[in-house]
Design a protein around this nucleic acid. Sequence first.
DNA 1: AAGAGGTGCAACCGCGCGAGT
DNA 2: TACTCGCGCGGTTGCACCTCT
Length: 284
Amino acid sequence: MGRSPCCEKAHTNKGAWTKEEDQRLINYIRAHGEGCWRSLPKAAGLSRCGKSCRLRWINYLRPDLKRGNFTEEEDELIIKLHSLLGNKWSVIAGRLPGRTDNEIKNYWNTHIKRKLISRGIDPQTHRPLNNTATNSHTTTTITTAVTTTTTTTKNINLDFTNVDQKQPSIMIATSSSYDETKCNSGTTEETKPLEIIIPKIPSQVMINLELSIGLPLHTDHISSPESTASYNFLTTVAPPTTAAVPAAEMVAKTVCLCWQIGYQGGGGQWCGKCKNTNGFYRYC
DNA sequence: AAGAGGTGCAACCGCGCGAGT
DNA sequence: TACTCGCGCGGTTGCACCTCT
């Protein structure tokens, strides 16, 4: 069986694009818009693969691209997003207007990786380099900064010290009040640690540490200036928005960072308002 | 001045997914 | 339900440019 090739390779150019090819592509997209990349090369009079045209447009020719060096703020944003999303370059790019996934990916591989290593941080795990190899009988501390719609920040510390002998506990310290029935609780000054007791388990049992990220189902959470001001990288793990989307609208995209921590095949902990859809808890 | 090695980035490749039939 | 098609994504490659010796 197999897939048919995306284009007739014998009749397509490869390698660097010429100015003439660029101009043809720009002119065609200006006249007809994006889309139907497969038929575009022929229609535009280009001897290129449709995928190649799409890549050239998205990564280089698009008028809304921001060229130039990454700022320190962008650096930190990329690091934070990567720590949460991993190599989801397109999602990360969606949070950096004017930057492309390819650009961010390249920048990560050439600059940020080195930067993190120089800080003593593993670029893949975002954990201290000298802490990457751990033993199940030693204390393992995983600290994840989880920010919800508001300024709520939770630091989750998993203490599996001597799992065989006693119940490990998970401490979630949050700078906002914690409401079991709501993911997107309002921000207050109150700090209330939440302790979850995990039943005694054998040390060889696999532990499922899955962080579930849901997309927003509704956008009526945020209306106050304070919450607008608190807009940050985690509030927009929603589908990418275009550059034309007003900032206020972007802010309105909310996300529930429901989390699940449990043994494989066993129960975990969920946000009280999450819905169980096809076996996965989503959205609240 | 020139060659070697390193770096950065544009472009390619293969695969997965969703829509359509 | 099975298959095709087109798009988009992430990983990888190739090459131009830069720096060092």
